[in-house]
Design a protein around this nucleic acid. Sequence first.
RNA 1: UGUCCCAUGGUGUAAUUGGUAACACACCGGUUUUUGGUACCGACAUUCAAGGUUCGAGUCCUUGUGGGACAACCA
Length: 564
Amino acid sequence: MSEETKSLHFLEQIIEEDLANGMPKENLRFRFPPEPNGYLHIGHTKAIGISFGLGQKYKAPVNLRFDDTNPAKEEQEYVDAIKRDITWLGYQWENECYSSDYFQQLYDWAVQLIKEGNAYVDSQTSEAMRIQKGTPTEVGTNSPFRNRTVEENLDLFTQMKNGEFEEGEHILRAKIDMESPNMLMRDPLMYRVLKKAHHRTGTDWCIYPMYDWTHGESDYLEQISHSLCSLEFKPHRELYNWFRDHVYEHSKSTLPLAPKQREFSRLNLSYTIMSKRKLLQLVEKGIVSGWDDPRMPTISGLRRRGYTPASIRNFIETVGVSKRENVIDVALLEFKIREDLNKIADRVMGVLDPVKVVIDNYPEGEEELLIAENNPEDEQAGSREIPFSRELYIEREDFREEANKKFFRLKLGKEVRLKSAYFITANSVEKDENGEITVIHCTYDPKTKSGSNTEESKRKVKGTLHWVSIQHAIKAEVRSYDRLFLDEAPDSHKDRDYMEFVNPDSLEVITAFVEPSLQSAKIGTQFQFQRLGYFNVDDDSTSEKLVFNKIVGLRDSWAKKINR
RNA sequence: UGUCCCAUGGUGUAAUUGGUAACACACCGGUUUUUGGUACCGACAUUCAAGGUUCGAGUCCUUGUGGGACAACCA
């Protein structure tokens, strides 16, 4: 078997180059560093897929590191959710790490920077510092506290650490260059006073390190070889290297590997948003029921909707890696779940919008069990029995009193097949006072029973309908979802707020009738409701009340045709 | 009027590193079908622009043009 040679994406090329230049393969180590301030979403899956994918490809360890340096936003709940989601996606981390585990080391290194004259305590207001920082097109100016003595800085920093100052009174800054064209190099903050309890270190600390100071040094401590992040961190790279190099000078004997940061473009999906802050707003404003609402692009939402880990991993792989801004068509994600579920989901029958069919020539009171194939794509899937009787439900849109030849379904005087059952012909209808059809009277042909192998059962008919036997059907709640936003890129408009684009009709709750085999369906199981789509048993489902989420519809070329 | 990044069909990603622009999705048409599903076949459609180097440029160079990032005691 010839292995198909897949082209390397640019990050793999960088790694190959480093390897070629003498980096031992054992030095390869990656990390995924979420901040535990929210739930993971499909966008994170790209970062997860890249770092864990590289780990698999090069048989290198991948650490899961919680970047927990802001106790104001972070919670244990999020730590737990993130671990659960990554595991569910099918990835395994080498070490579970926390930036907060490095607080002491970070502090010691900061003291060292102060001693070298590379960091100082600033005592201005944040407003004053903001003004001094300049703008992207104007250079900044030096702080009046920039030339404090080492002793003074050390003293102040110690007092900061000891809780002798209130929030906002003093901060520690790196002394770099207020005139740098890169604003991040204009004496960036390293520490601020924050008198808040941390979810792991409690009240041990009242100063907390900033992202730039923490992240690179955490990479360094864990000896991460390639620190991969999204494009917006590109300007941070210069600072990442500055901090790294100053620390490396003193620690290279024990920590010989100097990590490098490289950046890729993040994932955007059409018709949704990918910002934790904005997703949190959807939750807080009650627009969705929670982080795991099946309409949410979160991992937990997708899981509850019924997406499989494999479909998401395939999606990420197909999307690829580059440095271009991009918006992926959500249709690709939908294709990936259909592709996966087509192979593995059992077929069942359920009627979402029922109309009653009476088979006049079928004996009253009689019933029989018919054999139905579970999955035509999988011979191992076997078959099940479904009850048939004189009174059935079919889908209301599957019947018309009259229609042209393009309409393959049931109409007066025409014969169709009932899936796994018999051929029926519609003869007449009953209507209520509004003209709404209440009953369709049909006759069936007993010789056409599915699987009977009779000549009659092999007759060609254009239409095959799904159905349920009324007396045997189970009522179930079906939650049908539409996209959460009506705009293709809801948060990309400068003049309009993404909230304006929220789809008011993104959830439709339907009472459906499903075949009795579904009575024992377990939460989290996906089914194909034949001719309708894929459905997942929701977390809210009980044996008294089944609840299904519509994951995605089947491709529907008929609907496309009639909508034109 | 700064610095940096990016530019290939409708969308996303490739192109053996300078040698016939390909794959997937979407869209459209057809064949098969006890799901108007699946599968299969086909069609549509691409190198931002102008110069330059070269036998040869999506790829290298120059200049434009367009898009994006950067001014939180967030990450």
